[in-house]
Design a binder for these strands. Structure first.
Lengths: 249, 249
DNA sequence: AACCATTCAGGTACCATGTACGCAAATGAG
DNA sequence: CTCATTTGCGTACATGGTACCTGAATGGTT
């Protein structure tokens, strides 16, 4: 008799070993417990700190024990992504007002993206399709369903929204994360690291429009949440315009 | 007398040591040469294969020699990004037809993104602002300048385009890269890795709209380039709609 | 021409990481 | 009680970034 054999397949097809009634020692941990520890470490010290040894240490066990629950480290990333996405709270089904549904979704994704600064980077780095992600995606698709649109068009519009939300969050986190990674405090980093360079670029006069976008920006002084809202409204406007123009076909 | 001291600052503020006329051995390599080797390796075997040792080996030298030219490995990533972006060919200034200018830009970015499958992942993982990236960005901003729009609005629209282009390229590459990373050939991988899972999700009936987006997709059968064009036209439509609505304010 | 401060090349070494392997401990069926 | 089975996890190895150090090359100065 051979064991599971760990085929190179998606982790979503390799369910956790569930309760059985045969012989053998009982598992002392669980995927969820391990994933939760990994998320906690990644939140506090960055995703690069969530090493197998560190996670195991947090659980009071040895590194190799984790491999009884997770095939590879990369699969743990998928689990982390899905655990984070599971925090998103949405009504069971869309309300019928697609604009407010999508705005709600965007706010939720932003909240979870800020709570777990590693999430968006991981999510957009690897193509994963965990159950929680599917649930959220399904809600988004549902919000635009019933408007007389093609499923391809619906999916395209949802992608458009996601693209904005993800990159807006990235912009909001970007510098903060980079500062943490280099170990400097954010304020100092902005002044000493990115600041002088941008200032030099502006002073050089070689990129006048980029310079204006830095110098003359009105939205730069807004609170982050306001800026997010502002861009979101724009994207929803664009979606609204496309909804009417696509429906007319 | 002390040397450059390698402050933790942006690599764009630490120019390469240029030709001087003092004493001391002449440098045998250059940043560009090293970056070019790194790009070549990353193109052929993935970015994770572009290790310091491997790059040095390619140049016929030792790993530590590279540190005379590049402060840290991460900075090499910034250099790689900018070298790739420098391949983008654009007219000196926008033509006045913003739609064709942005379409040209999108096609160029797609081409370079496919040629260097690691580019988009790196680009969207770290906030970098090399000269070539600035040049491309400036062109994009310029395409929308002079239409009576706010600089913030222009930047927002450019971001919107970039978001689409990047995520479309990621979708186009995603599976291929993942397949290469796990060492399987792409066809087999699609059938054995992602295929069964998606099939199971569809069969479960739990996510009907997602299932339809997989099953009933018409664009899935298009050539990749056609799909990219299709989505791009949609984004440009959205930008057009926003241009008129924002101008009216 | 001889010397020397300066700079580069790169070997050695250290530490951290993912993970293959193997063995001992735990567990319940017979 | 015995034993097949499963978990816990220490050990070990390959590979990675990079600090440090020695020796070689170089051109100005004496």
């Amino acid at each position: 008799m051979r064991m599971a054999d760990e085929q190179p397949t998606s982790i979503w097809l390799q369910p956790e070993r569930q309760e059985r009634s045969g012989p053998g020692r009982r598992p002392g941990y669980s995927r969820e417990q391990i994933t939760r520890a990994a998320v906690q470490i990644a939140d506090a010290e960055g995703v690069e700190a969530a090493t197998m040894r560190r996670i195991a240490c947090e659980l009071g066990t040895g590194a190799m024990s984790l491999y009884r629950y997770v095939p590879r480290r990369d699969d743990l990333f998928d689990l982390m992504i899905d655990l984070a996405m599971s925090e998103i709270e949405l009504p069971g089904s869309p309300s019928g007002d697609w604009r407010s549904d999508l705005a709600l979704l965007a706010d939720q994704v932003r909240a979870v993206g800020l709570r777990h600064p590693w999430l968006i980077t991981l999510l957009t780095s690897r193509p994963t399709l965990g159950p929680s992600l599917l649930r959220v995606h399904e809600f988004a698709l549902g919000a635009l369903d019933g408007l007389g649109l093609d499923i391809d068009d619906i999916a395209g519009l949802v992608d458009m929204l996601n693209d904005y939300v993800h990159s807006a969050i990235r912009r909001e986190i970007g510098w903060l994360e980079e500062a943490r990674r280099t170990g400097l405090d954010p304020e100092r980093w902005k002044r000493d690291y990115i600041g002088p360079y941008v200032r030099e670029v502006v002073a050089s006069g070689a990129f006048p429009l980029f310079s204006r976008s830095v110098t003359d920006s009105r939205t730069a002084h807004l609170a982050p949440e306001e800026r997010f809202r502002h861009g979101l409204d724009r994207i929803l406007d664009a979606i609204a315009a496309l909804v009417t123009s696509l429906r007319r076909r």
